[in-house]
Write a protein that binds this DNA or RNA. Structure first.
Length: 301
DNA sequence: GATGGAATAT
DNA sequence: TATATTCCAT
């Protein structure tokens, strides 16, 4: 975004990558973009798209056909948005509610029905501005996931695949995401919670079973350590204490103003608030004990 | 083959 | 350390 702030000619020069298997569509897009002095790169195959997107920071916005041959476009869009932090606009002839919803769910910022309306192209830059306003030096915010940019920039081979894009990011378990995780775990019961079910209950776009499995593993280790400490009579180890405090503090600072849309989650937050008012110290213990006492008991036995 | 979980790598 | 990935058992 910085490149636009002091640029009086903006949005002229907006860098657009258009991906569609149909050359005619690409040419139409190019014509329209030219009228507004956008700089267009046309691309009519999945492999070209991957190749062009290998280098980051080359485009401000991506237009992509929802039905590219030889490509799982939704998966691609998901990975591309995570990695590139640019707005993605999906295009298709059909505009059923389900396809629009799916596009948005996978990270597209909007969905255009073909043939494209010139007005849409004209105001395309607004999506870039909106996207940029959520920009942060360290994080990209994608849906409800926060993804840390990968620091390493290893060389990549030419046959870049979606994995190449996907592998560069790592998920950060924000307090709110952890909260959702806890809700799911408690709903299932800690002893019965399995990654796949947790994932299903959390229902967070882009979150994968591997993410959950890894987090669950860490979470169990934390619980076990905490239980061991208690067993040995040391009230609370500095370590587990700071872990608890960290989550609690972040949850507090995060969300009590921005209530969740999701009613379940809202309820959980309210529950959290009440627990906090009553006994701040016992907050996490109460929360964990809810339905998971037996697991803790087993650990401590 | 799908899944879960521990071990291991990054 | 946090998270991702691999490896092995079920």
């Amino acid at each position: 975004m910085a490149r636009f702030v002091d640029n009086p000619s903006f949005p002229a020069g907006l860098r657009v990558i258009a991906i569609d298997h149909d050359i005619i569509v690409l040419n139409t897009i190019e014509d329209m973009c030219n009228r507004y002095h956008y700089q267009v790169t046309k691309c009519n195959s999945a492999s070209d798209a991957l190749y062009l997107l290998e280098r980051k920071d080359c485009y401000d916005v991506m237009l992509i056909d929802a039905h590219m041959p030889n490509m799982d476009v939704y998966d691609f869009v998901q990975n591309a948005t995570l990695q590139l932090n640019i707005p993605v606009i999906m295009m298709a002839v059909d505009s059923t509610k389900s396809s629009i919803m799916k596009s948005i769910e996978y990270g597209a910022c909007t969905y255009w029905t073909k043939p494209l309306a010139e007005e849409e192209v004209k105001i395309m830059w607004q999506h870039v501005v909106r996207n940029g306003s959520t920009e942060n030096k360290e994080y990209e915010i994608v849906g409800s996931l926060v993804v840390q940019e990968c620091r390493k920039r290893g060389r990549e081979d030419a046959n870049a695949s979606k994995e190449t894009l996907a592998k560069k990011t790592s998920l950060s378990w924000s307090p709110e995401l952890h909260q959702q995780f806890l809700c799911a775990v408690n709903q299932l019961g800690l002893d019965k919670a399995r990654p796949k079910m947790i994932l299903k209950i959390m229902d967070v776009p882009g979150l994968r079973v591997g993410h959950v499995a890894s987090h669950l593993q860490k979470y169990r280790i934390h619980l076990k350590r905490s239980a061991d400490e208690t067993k040995r009579g040391r009230t609370k180890s500095k370590w587990s204490d700071s872990f608890q405090a960290e989550w609690i503090d972040k949850v507090h600072s995060y969300d009590f103003q921005t209530k969740s849309i999701d009613q379940d989650r809202n309820d959980n937050l309210i529950q959290t608030e009440l627990a906090d008012q009553d006994r701040n110290d016992d907050f996490l213990a109460e929360w964990i004990d809810c339905g998971t006492g037996s697991y803790l008991h087993n650990l401590m036995a």
